[in-house]
């Protein structure tokens, strides 16, 4: 058990994977000498050399495209996209190539690559560097999608992602890199594709992931202390696959659910989950399933506007109170 940060846990996962498997290579803008825009890959080039930690030109499409070819040719590439906001540049390689190759080619070959990237608000990075675009990925069959919320998962989920036979988009949250936590790299983590119940509660279920998980947990504490409301909080961990089996019994018990996501509300991850819960748990619901999601607007650079463009712990608390009034 060591104390480390979300960033440190990610770096540890990459280091361990590279030591274990010669085929693992990291490629992306500034991943080598600079050490990664958010410092995740710092020092790796010294340990593993520039053939395995590859600084690329600013060519997002070709970074992902080359990772596709490398994965097909036997490497285990971990491509880094500096900001998820740049995913549009890579979308052909991601959605038309990586996601479809196994299916189009009749199962002959898979594309076991990782696209590591980060998104979300919290650093006044402005409209083109603060988005939560996980829905773009989730809308494409063939792509796995993991979004770690905790230090433990920064390590274990990335390690699990690197063992998947199919392409995984791994979206970190820029607001979590400095978060501290305990990490036991030898612990048995929750299985890949399994959600984690972070908190039990029989009044309302809060389904969340990534940084909003922490907001949901803070809200649940407040609700218990101030209102005696017991909120269950679920960390989805992966958005493809979605672990509905964990959500169902909680919602069936509580009869009320909300989905908390930083992505914009319309046609987003929260919309999909709310629809799923409504479909699957209809006969158990006492209230409409509520989406507590990002506003349908771009993110401002102003810290004040930015903060209120996405759910806050206070807002989540307020919504739970409204539901249980």
């Amino acid at each position: 058990m060591i104390e480390t940060t979300y960033r440190g846990a990610l770096r540890q996962a990459l280091t361990d994977a590279m030591q274990e498997n010669e085929a693992v290579v990291i490629m992306g803008e500034e991943v080598g000498r600079y050490g990664g825009a958010y410092g995740v890959t710092k020092g790796l080039i010294d340990e593993f050399g520039e053939d395995r930690v590859i600084d690329t030109p600013i060519s997002e499409a070709a970074i992902v495209g080359a990772a596709v070819g490398a994965a097909m040719a036997g490497l285990r590439p971990v491509a880094e996209l500096m900001y998820v906001d740049f995913i549009g540049m890579t979308m052909d390689q991601l959605a038309n190539q990586a996601a479809k190759i196994r299916y189009m080619f009749g199962g002959q070959i898979g594309v076991p690559m990782i696209l590591r990237t980060q998104g979300g608000t919290g650093r006044s990075a402005g409209a083109q560097h603060s988005q939560s675009l996980e829905a773009y990925v989730m809308h494409t069959p063939g792509l796995r999608l993991a979004m770690p919320a905790t230090v433990e998962d920064a390590y274990h989920l990335l390690r699990q992602a690197m063992k998947q036979p199919d392409p995984v988009v791994f979206i970190e949250h820029k607001g979590l890199y400095t978060m501290k936590g305990e990490l036991d790299t030898s612990a048995e983590p929750a299985a890949w594709g399994k959600a984690r119940v972070m908190r039990e509660g029989s009044d309302v279920v809060i389904v969340s992931y990534s940084r909003q998980l922490h907001h949901a947990l803070a809200a649940a504490d407040t609700l218990e202390k101030e209102n005696g409301i017991q909120a269950a909080v679920v960390d989805l961990r992966t958005l493809n696959p979605i672990d509905f089996a964990t959500i169902r019994p909680l919602v069936e018990q509580a009869g009320r659910a909300m989905v908390v996501s930083e992505g914009v509300m319309t046609a987003g991850v929260a919309a999909e989950l709310a629809a799923r819960i409504t479909e699957e748990c209809f006969d158990y619901l006492e209230d409409p399933v509520v989406r507590v999601a990002g506003e349908d607007i771009p993110i401002s650079v102003s810290p004040l506007l930015e903060k209120h463009s996405v759910p806050t712990p206070e807002f989540i608390t307020e919504v739970a109170r409204m539901m249980l009034k």
Binding site: V25, M27, G65, A66, V68, G69, A70, A73
Partner: peptide
């Protein structure tokens, strides 16, 4: 096209 860059790296 970019896949051959990856295959070349491999």
């Amino acid at each position: 096209i970019p896949a051959v860059v990856g295959a070349g790296l491999a």
